[in-house]
Write a protein that binds this DNA or RNA. Structure first.
Length: 266
DNA sequence: CTCCCGCATC
DNA sequence: GATGCGGGAG
């Protein structure tokens, strides 16, 4: 795309270097030719104070309303990985018992790697999505074989595993390694879209939302901030019947004046 | 974009 | 009984 046939509808915009070094220093945005000059304004204006207000309110909300989840009481990247892969497919309350059972049986990458994959799948049962325990097992094998049993922490290394995509890589980096890495799952997508964009389909704004998710992280607080985003989306800014009345973002939310009490924004 | 696949929701 | 959900892979 970059360097291809010039399309007047494509403008290049410099963005923060969360993917610096990958050669993707620019984000491509599709606009209509007539509006290309104004298109820059389509990106939500994020003033310093708006950003700060969002950060403070979210962290304050999290301190009061955050959930106490098992994978928040560990610093072991292996435990974090297991929880993330389970959470890719299943709701929190179904994951919790299986998370404990799984770690009980396979306490480390070494234990998991040495186990026969069939047995791992049996332990996984009845969570379903049986390709995922296979991939988790293969991640364990590779981690032992290529990384000395320690999960790597760079995005590039994490993305090289089958079963780890951009979201899970960000979750691992922030939750297991305390890095200020962005995450964007459907919860976070919904929250950021409602608060900062409000118009159109969240999925269409994915790249903007990734950039938002990154720039919003308070320096050094990636762990708390991302956990807070997840909890906020899961329990307050829910997909159906969001709790707008007590929501701390009410006064800055682009969706709120029109979206309160509605199932969907607009 | 489609498929995966098991559950929640309607 | 049908539909929606949801990261990742292809």
């Amino acid at each position: 795309m970059i360097g291809g046939a010039p399309d007047p509808r494509l403008i290049l915009q410099e963005r923060a270097p969360y993917n610096a070094g990958t050669g993707l220093r620019f984000m491509i945005r599709r606009t209509t030719p007539a509006r290309s000059r104004k298109a820059v304004n389509r990106r939500p204006k994020l003033t310093r104070s708006l950003k700060r207000r969002f950060q403070l309110r979210l962290l304050k909300w999290y301190a009061a309303n955050g959930r106490d989840l098992p994978w928040r009481n560990t610093a072991d990247p292996y435990h974090i990985l297991v929880s993330e892969v389970m959470l890719q497919q299943t709701q929190v309350d179904r994951v919790i018992p299986k998370y404990h059972e799984f770690l009980d049986r396979y306490p480390s990458f070494q234990h998991l790697a040495e186990a026969p994959v069939g047995e791992v799948k049996t332990t996984w049962y009845p969570l379903g999505y049986n390709i995922r325990p296979e991939r988790l097992h293969s991640i364990a094998c590779e981690t032992v074989a290529r990384y000395g049993g320690k999960l790597p922490s760079t995005e590039e290394d994490l993305l090289s595993f089958k079963g780890i995509g951009r979201y899970t890589a960000g979750a691992i980096r922030s939750f297991a390694f305390n890095e200020d890495a962005p995450i964007l799952d459907t919860n976070v997508m919904r929250v950021l879209h409602r608060v900062f964009i409000a118009k159109g389909d969240p999925k269409a704004s994915k790249s903007i939302l990734w950039a938002l998710s990154e720039t919003l992280i308070p320096k050094g607080r990636g762990y708390d901030f991302n956990q807070a985003l997840m909890d906020f989306g899961a329990t307050c800014c829910t997909s159906r019947n969001p709790s707008c009345r007590p929501c701390p973002m009410k006064s800055i939310c682009k969706t709120y004046p029109f979206g309160a009490g509605r199932t969907k924004p607009l």
